[in-house]
Design a protein around this nucleic acid. Structure first.
Lengths: 168, 168
DNA sequence: TTAAACTTTCAGTAATTATTGAAAGTTTAA
DNA sequence: TTAAACTTTCAATAATTACTGAAAGTTTAA
């Protein structure tokens, strides 16, 4: 396979995976493009490579910066802004985990805590079932939360080392 | 908070979380409704409770069955079909992990393996960066895959016990 | 200053995804 | 059989989400 074709495939696959996980496809594709670019790229280059408009490129890049995955760079003597993606896969995974936890898991945990505290008649099957499901999901979510917390602080090799030692 | 209100909140929260993670909001809501219902429900009841059409209810329930989260039940002497959701949170988590792995992770792993094997000139920064990113992501994805594999086979208490022992 | 080079915004539009509802299909029991 | 009770399908439509492109905004250097 040619490098050019392989790049294309990678960008497509990353975009597809992103969209399946609730991440805008274009955003995932821009990220993919930057991940395989040794040099920082300009808005112009990204627009051209992915055939997207200036507005789209601008907003997508801003989002990627908001996710902590991309940074702006400036080159001496140039007006243009350059965009560069962190290439460290473990950093990327942690960054995504961190943001999604903050944006999605935390709010849900808050609601689940509230709902776990709703009082009712344990003899009422309606209440009993509600209470059990909510409480159980809350426990699971808290476990996930704690695990993410550890992951966020961990070194990659230590993390996987421990995981696989545990599973041996 | 009233039980009725709490139920409503739970259904909303579950729907929102689902949609943020690439799962159709209605499907997540139907699942939520069934999770807090002690008894199996009919299509009719689900339509009414969530104000959705018959077609939508039917397709959504079929999807939920496809995900292994809901089962059809029949009551003696009745024509109607009843739908019942597994209430075991750990089963649910495993089932979702299993399906998403099959549907999304596996195909991506296949592509990453292919792309990891693309040959090129290591002196070419374009190739070197592509190769490093793809190889690193492939390694991470494989670790996730192995971990899921263990999780799918594990008992809940053992799983979290090991996780938290490891993080101590 | 000012005008060229560049970035940001956002109303309008396009593309995608989800939903409806009525018709077609199926099953059951009399 | 047949007709009532129920389920499934899917074309049409609605709702949501993403994208465009041109105008407005900003920065820089002469």
């Amino acid at each position: 396979m040619e490098l050019a074709e392989a790049k294309q495939k990678f960008i497509e696959a990353w975009g597809k995976l992103g969209s399946e996980w609730g991440i805008n496809r274009t955003m995932a594709q821009v990220h993919a493009l930057l991940l395989i670019s040794p040099e920082a790229l300009t808005t112009e280059e990204i627009m051209k490579d992915l055939s997207i408009s200036r507005g789209n490129a601008n907003m997508t890049l801003r989002d990627l910066i908001g996710w902590g995955l991309v940074e702006k760079q400036h080159k001496a003597g140039e007006r243009k802004e350059y965009f560069y993606a962190d290439k460290d896969t473990w950093n990327i995974a942690r960054q995504v985990a961190k943001e999604r936890r903050k944006r999605e898991l935390d709010p849900v945990l808050k609601i689940l805590d509230e709902l776990s505290n709703v009082k009712g008649d344990v003899k009422d099957p309606e209440f009993a079932t509600f209470n059990k499901s909510v409480t159980d999901i809350n426990k699971l979510a808290k476990n996930v939360d704690k695990t993410l917390d550890t992951m966020l602080k961990a070194e990659e090799s230590w993390f996987w080392g421990s995981i696989f030692k545990m599973f041996k």
